[in-house]
Design a protein around this nucleic acid. Structure first.
Lengths: 218, 218
DNA sequence: TGCAGTAGACAGTATCGCTATCCGATAGCT
DNA sequence: AGCTATCGGATAGCGATACTGTCTACTGCA
């Protein structure tokens, strides 16, 4: 399979494919000669993964590089999760502002064990601070329910993981699951918000004001 | 308060403040003269909100513009959620690929009511497709638990909302809560993954391999 | 009177994810 | 053997985003 076939069967342009190879997220083709390479199904699959992560989960090329490195060199399970966690853009990871210690306390109040030292703690705390700045500090109950939901999701992630026996499969699930799980959850949250909103504030028989319709905004 | 004071008390550079004013997300100062304006506490608060949304939640300037418009002109509650939902970058919103009908079915299977027509449905479905492409389709149980967690979060959001009586407060909570709730949840999910991972695969007394440590990757 | 500070306009910068073009080589057809 | 489409590889450019820097004209205050 030549590069043009690879391009045709994945919908990714040839320059983009070359770019991915250059960036090291896609393996070069097997060189049949000085300027003749052939690509296989592995390339098709990898390319689909790359596009899925970039388009579907907003992962950067640098993040994809880390994830595929985790897939290629099989690594301990916990580390796979860790790599994906570091690679997936948790918005706000590099804000320069320190969270208030009060907010950190609130996060730690719903957190146990090793999680207390997780780098996401200050990120969550900073988000709580931003809430407070807007003038509406959030209740403990709200945060506790978020933590409960997060625990459900984390258990689902690990249960899914344990259904696979091959450590390579597990690493893949961990890496990709962290990235795509975020967006699945965000989507379901928005859907649930719409459902719950409709339940609590049934809209008149009218037509034009469902949350869905605002998507048209630029 | 002059622009330099505003800059000093928020940590935002003067050119950035001018930029925000230019982009319409921050009100100009009250003009005392042709080149003399004064700024108040409202400007400080708004600026902190802007930085919080941009740095903390990854919202774009265009998204911030929509959110602050929702805050300034008070609008119906459902629409506030809708605006925030449209403004907050749900990664993968504009991927060109259609989801498989099978994936859409799976999402709809855990969705009810008005949510079935929500624009996030195809986004979630596309994420499921990407999972499948990597070779690891996810179980129904996994998705069902995600949906359960999303419902918990959505109910928490609305409960929080209903604690405020002022519709303006409600709009603010809805808009900001959608944006920042995403990142609070993502953070808590990562923390919960670390906790759950430690519970299921206790690491040896060693030191260097907690998921947290991988954050150092570029 | 002098100068720090201001508003406003506009051009420049850095990063990201491509995309376009050029080059020399060559496979495959005639 | 000759021709041409395509190839790999390299390098430069593009468009969007979020600033940042510079310039100008002006003005309040010491």
């Amino acid at each position: 399979m030549r590069i043009s076939d690879l391009s045709r069967s994945t919908g990714v342009s040839i320059p983009s494919i070359k770019y991915y190879i250059r960036e090291g997220v896609l393996a070069p083709g097997d060189a049949d000669g000085p300027n003749r390479s052939s690509y296989g199904e592995a390339h098709v699959a990898r390319l689909r993964l790359i596009r899925g992560l970039i388009e579907g989960a907003g992962v950067t090329i640098a993040g994809v590089k880390q994830i595929v490195a985790a897939l290629d060199g099989s690594m301990p399970l916990n580390d796979s999760f860790g790599v994906a966690q570091a690679a997936v853009p948790l918005a706000g990871r590099d804000a320069p502002v320190d969270p208030s210690s009060d907010a950190v306390e609130r996060v730690l109040a719903v957190t146990e064990g090793i999680g207390r030292h997780h780098p996401a703690v200050p990120i969550a705390a900073r988000a709580l601070d931003t809430f407070a700045v807007v003038g509406e500090p959030l209740s403990e109950a709200w945060l506790a329910r978020y933590a409960e939901a997060a625990a459900i999701v984390a258990r689902a992630d690990f249960d899914e993981l344990e259904q696979r026996s091959d450590p390579v499969d597990q690493a893949r699930i961990a890496a990709v699951g962290t990235a795509l799980g975020d967006i699945v959850f965000q989507s379901l949250r928005r859907i649930a918000q719409a459902t719950e909103g409709e339940r609590r504030f049934p809209s008149p028989p009218a037509s034009s004001s469902s949350p869905a319709d605002t998507e048209t905004a630029s």
